[in-house]
Amino acid sequence: MGDVIPSADPDSPICSAKGCRAPARWVLAWNNPKLHTPDRRKTWVACDEHREHLSSFLGMRGFLKDVVPLAEWEQGDDG
């Protein structure tokens, strides 16, 4: 991994990958069917570099439900 330049906006989400401080660009919606109801969605956020790795981690466990761009996810929160 190269040097990561922190986001200019301190309130913007950062990648959920351990040790990564890059700005998040993706939302990974998931749930653990042993713990959560089918409609419940937990979220991790990912930078471009870690999107595939985090998606694979959740997918191998059968937890991954959706991967959407962060901007699209935030628009969905508006209404």
Rank of each mutant, 00 (worst) to 15 (best):
M1P: 10
G2A: 11
D3W: 07
D3H: 15
D3E: 13
V4K: 11
V4A: 10
I5T: 07
I5Q: 05
P6V: 04
S7H: 13
S7T: 12
A8C: 06
A8V: 07
A8I: 05
D9E: 08
D9H: 11
P10H: 10
P10K: 14
P10S: 13
D11H: 11
D11V: 05
P13C: 05
C15F: 00
S16K: 01
A17D: 11
A17N: 11
K18P: 01
K18E: 09
G19H: 02
G19K: 09
C20V: 08
R21T: 15
A22V: 08
A22R: 11
A22W: 00
A24T: 02
A24S: 12
A24R: 01
R25Y: 02
R25S: 10
R25I: 02
V27M: 03
L28N: 00
A29M: 10
W30P: 03
W30F: 15
W30Q: 05
N31W: 06
N31Q: 08
N31Y: 05
P33G: 07
P33E: 06
P33R: 10
P33F: 02
P33H: 05
K34N: 13
K34H: 12
H36F: 05
T37P: 03
T37S: 11
T37E: 12
P38I: 00
P38K: 11
D39E: 14
R40C: 04
R40W: 11
R41Y: 07
K42Q: 15
T43L: 10
T43P: 00
T43N: 14
W44P: 03
W44N: 15
W44T: 06
W44M: 14
W44K: 13
A46D: 01
A46V: 00
C47N: 09
C47Y: 02
C47S: 05
D48I: 00
E49Y: 10
H50D: 01
H50P: 03
R51I: 06
E52D: 15
E52I: 06
E52K: 09
H53L: 12
L54V: 00
S55Y: 07
F57E: 12
F57D: 13
L58S: 03
L58K: 03
G59S: 15
M60H: 14
R61D: 02
R61M: 08
R61Q: 15
R61L: 12
G62Y: 08
G62E: 05
F63M: 11
F63I: 02
F63T: 06
L64R: 04
K65P: 02
K65E: 10
V67T: 12
V68E: 01
P69C: 02
L70F: 01
E72N: 06
E72P: 02
E72K: 10
E72M: 08
E72T: 15
W73E: 05
W73N: 08
W73S: 13
E74S: 07
G76V: 04
D77L: 14
D77C: 08
D77M: 13
D77I: 01
D78I: 00
D78V: 04
D78A: 12
G79K: 12
G79D: 13
